[in-house]
Design a protein around this nucleic acid. Structure first.
Lengths: 227, 227
DNA sequence: CTCAAAGTTGACGTTGATTCACTTTTGTCT
DNA sequence: AGACAAAAGTGAATCAACGTCAACTTTGAG
């Protein structure tokens, strides 16, 4: 028994029995990615070494390099994977949305739902003070953002959206969603629906339409009753 | 002549002549920070080594460690410096702003102006594909964000702002501003006023009030006049 | 059962991080 | 000015992690 981190994947795609060699390859790759998720979350991206990752898999150090060229490439793979999962959802929302408003609402819902479901991956960007938060502009990421922007341009062309600066609009929505997403997953009660509501209201209607929290914060001194 | 990277700073604070020792210390520290800015921008944060940084200063490798414990700490210092420059401006805007709307508008202006003026520091987060973008949650950063949030809470208490989720609101504005800021400094013509307008309109009024770009993108087929 | 190809392994040469004994510079006190 | 102690700088030496590669094991095909 050399190694391999046997686990699931006895599967077969379209009837192909899928030989042991290929199974192992898939499993090893997945094991490395999973280990990387764990270690990144534990130590932070900057502090983790390739060997920290590979150690958790039981594989030999050299094997790592059969799968990835570096720690960065693993990270890239993780980001890409995330993006590849979310893009179809956004595309689906795009299709079933009739208006720009609809699309924004649905897309934000999809995004926050996804984030909540795959929380683990995104804990890479920890909240620990003095930890570097990383983000990688992978090809898949850029394409994903551009796709969103493209939708906006379309809406501008068909008149659903006034001719605004689509790059800024895309960046705004993306930045807002990502930063809110970070906060969301840091909370004890992750509530993607609430986050999506909030973001949607802000983007679509300005802060006047934001959902109001239950408790108005305790009035400091003893002011007028107000409202 | 051992070293020192003599440059400016012959200054004196409040009459104190400021001995050579202290001057050198300040200059060396500044030289390291400046070198770091350069190297980070050139190679990207991940790829730069402590030696790349120190090499550009002419100082000995050991000297680096008299000033910083690691590359991360240098980065932290850069981020902190940026935050320490921007915070007083935000505070000033806060004071002269009468309403929440005013504050948002003024604060966003201040932020984008600052970013444009200190472009160099923020090029750390390059746009090169497959480069890791970094951001650090330093104490100063967190405090800065919390301060903004605190302002929002105040406005909620005094009724200028409805009782919304202040963490999310702060995160939204911060995320939106940072992401837009990245795009802004990547453009050929950096126009902080325009960026601030855009962001302000989005935050305060929803997308309906966004400034409209000059050219409406070419109508695809040959639609009706619309509007 | 046999063999070649694919894949794994871990020891090894490199590179960069970090330490530290030693040197130089600076400020202070006669 | 001269002497001395503290502060800061220096770079060789040590150490950790990287990435490679020759040798070894497993797999799949005949």
């Amino acid at each position: 028994m050399t190694t391999s981190v046997e686990e699931a994947v006895t599967e077969r795609a379209e009837g192909k029995p899928l030989g042991k060699r290929e199974r192992t390859k898939i499993n090893n790759r997945e094991a490395i990615l999973q280990a990387a998720r764990d270690v990144f979350a534990d130590l932070g991206y900057g502090a983790t070494t390739v060997r920290d990752i590979i150690r958790r898999t039981g594989l030999a150090s050299g094997t790592f390099y059969n799968y990835f060229r570096s720690k960065e490439e693993v990270f890239e793979a993780l980001m890409d994977e995330g993006m590849r999962r979310i893009r179809p959802r956004l595309r689906a929302e795009r299709i079933r949305s009739r208006t720009f408003e609809d699309f924004i609402r649905n897309a934000l819902h999809a995004y926050f739902e996804y984030l909540a479901s795959d929380r683990e991956t995104f804990e890479v960007m920890r909240r620990n003070p003095n930890t570097v938060r990383v983000r990688m502009e992978t090809a898949e990421m850029i394409a994903g953002f551009e796709e969103i922007r493209e939708y906006m341009e379309e809406d501008i062309r068909n008149g659903t959206l006034p001719p605004v600066d689509s790059e800024y609009l895309m960046a705004s929505v993306v930045g807002l969603a990502m930063e809110m997403g970070d906060r969301m997953i840091a909370r004890d009660n992750v509530d993607p629906a609430a986050a999506a509501e909030f973001a949607t209201a802000l983007v679509l209607g300005g802060f006047h339409n934001l959902p109001v929290t239950g408790k108005a914060p305790a009035a400091p001194g003893g002011e007028e009753g107000g409202e």
